[in-house]
């Protein structure tokens, strides 16, 4: 019958070196993950370059899209952080656009008959990538918090106006709560992308195995096929939503750092 073989649901997450590099025993190969991050970044740069090259007072179609994105993030930063937030706009915007692009590029189906290293890859489906992004955010929060508030930044862990014995309990809880922020940020994005891609692959795998079974069974392949279409639509929503949530939480944490000494 039809000779097709579905790859396992985990194969899509495999890191494959494209240009092997090894410096002082540390493997820094250019991998498929790096390739897709580069593609995402390149696409963003190209998109914004083309959109703003002939900037007009009355924007064209592409320029409007870019302006909508800009205003969306700009409003988010202003509403969440306040007047101090202006200087964080470049960071939040970069973060939002990069995660959005990386998520969306991962949804493009791989071209058939290409080597596995060229298959579509979602960098944000790896915990180490999302954790690195979260760590950058938290580092900025901590550095900016100390720079802005000095030692009063520690008031974040000890809100004023509590009876003295409560601090024994509240301070550890607040410290753990603060330390859990990067974990929560990273795991949320990673888990969403990872789970979504596994579900997508499982549905697609059902289609393939039902089709290769041949005969009347092939008719049942339509159900997982429709499921795969629905999951793909859902994944587009999740891709945009998780980029947004990451940006929102970055803004909230930055706002906490900016106003740590207020309370």
């Amino acid at each position: 019958m039809i000779d097709i073989r579905a790859a396992g649901p985990m194969e899509q997450f495999e890191i494959l070196p494209i240009i092997p590099l090894d410096i002082a025993g540390i493997d820094i190969s250019f991998t498929n993950s790096s390739l897709w991050m580069l593609i995402a970044t390149g696409a963003i740069v190209l998109f914004f370059f083309l959109a703003t090259r002939r900037a007009a007072l009355i924007p064209g179609r592409v320029q409007s899209a870019v302006e909508v994105l800009y205003e969306f993030v700009s409003d988010l930063v202003r509403d969440t952080i306040g007047s101090d937030g202006r200087k964080f706009f470049p960071y939040v915007f970069t973060l939002f656009i990069f995660i959005l692009a990386a998520n969306l590029f991962g949804l493009i189906p791989s071209l058939p008959y290409t080597p596995a290293a060229m298959h579509t890859f979602t960098p944000t489906s790896h915990l180490i990538v999302t954790l690195a992004l979260a760590m950058v955010t938290i580092s900025i929060v901590v550095i900016y918090g100390f720079w802005k508030n000095g030692l009063k930044f520690f008031k974040l862990f000890a809100p004023s106006g509590l009876p003295i014995y409560m601090y024994v309990l509240i301070v550890p809880i607040e410290i753990i709560s603060f330390l859990s922020r990067p974990i929560s940020l990273a795991v949320r994005l990673f888990a969403n992308m990872f789970a979504g891609h596994i579900i997508l692959k499982l549905f697609a795998g059902f289609v393939v195995s039902l089709l290769s079974a041949g005969g009347a069974v092939m008719v049942f392949g339509i159900a997982p096929f429709l499921g795969a279409i629905a999951v793909t639509a859902l994944e587009f929503l999740v891709a945009a939503l998780q980029a947004y949530v990451f940006a929102v939480l970055t803004c909230i944490y930055l706002s906490d750092a900016a106003h740590a000494s207020d309370h």
């Binding site: 753990i176 922020r181 974990i183 795991v187 949320r188 888990a191």
Partner: peptide
Amino acid sequence: MRVSSDLLAGIFVG
């Protein structure tokens, strides 16, 4: 998703 990961991250870090 936010609520569930917030709770899990707190327990994990603690």
